[in-house]
Design a protein around this nucleic acid. Structure first.
Lengths: 125, 125
DNA sequence: TCCTGTCAACGGGTTCTTCCGTAGTAGGTG
DNA sequence: CACCTACTACGGAAGAACCCGTTGACAGGA
């Protein structure tokens, strides 16, 4: 249990790195919704590196940053926190909320059903 | 879209209020895992009240605090943030992660399947 | 009456977060 | 060389979050 957590701004940046695989300061800055100063983005990246969530390599004169944390690990931590704090520890209740989303269409729901079936079959062992 | 969000400590406190329905400062303090000073807990509650997430009524000499936000609403906001930032907007990927949890037993998984089936039937309309 | 215990209000210290300006470095160009 | 540009390092301001001590109000008991 590594207790992964990010501040809102850090999450914005990590999200971009996960999506793209890596990024220079400028790339992250461009991908960011809000217009931040170059040095602001750099600061966030440096903080993330200090905390061990990203690393960098030199690329020409610039640094290229890579996430060192898998999104799945971050997701696990985040979901566990939500499950415990908001759904009183019940994955089922969280699940119910997820499934009740009106925005979900039939195809997604079908695929979810398939995943669940796979998982249940696997449970046999 | 009300953009509900809590700091970690605020979430601890809200969690207790949701669980119990309401609470005085002392009750929340006792229910809290960590040992905080009375006034620390009071501060959190006052901040939450300022932000409109709880309200209070007098009970004897003390205040009793009630959540004014439903956990479902907070859950929606939190799940949407995770979905967008960590799972690139895909509810399915989030779902896959949820289902892959080794801690889930057959009974939970069965109930999830039932919920999903209900939801799918409902989708017919 | 006086003391003790419980309570909310207030203020303040410390750290974290967010954002950016400035300074310094190094490469390329005229 | 002088100059411009793209980059990182550093420091710091402003505000949020976190935690608590002190104060004053009030009730109940000795």
């Amino acid at each position: 249990m590594d207790e992964i957590s990010f501040t809102p701004r850090e999450l914005d940046v990590m999200s971009i790195l996960w999506r793209a695989g890596s990024g220079t300061v400028s790339e992250v800055r461009d991908a960011l919704g809000e217009a931040l100063a170059y040095t602001s983005v750099l600061s966030v990246l440096q903080t993330l590196e200090e905390k061990g969530h990203v690393r960098h390599e030199s690329e020409g004169r610039a640094y290229r940053y890579f996430p060192t944390v898998e999104p799945e690990a971050a997701g696990d931590s985040a979901l566990a926190r939500i499950r415990d704090a908001i759904y009183q520890g019940s994955a089922e209740m969280l699940f119910a909320q997820l499934v009740s989303d009106r925005g979900l269409g039939r195809p997604e729901l079908e695929r979810m059903r398939r995943m669940l079936a796979e998982r249940l079959k696997e449970e046999e062992s």
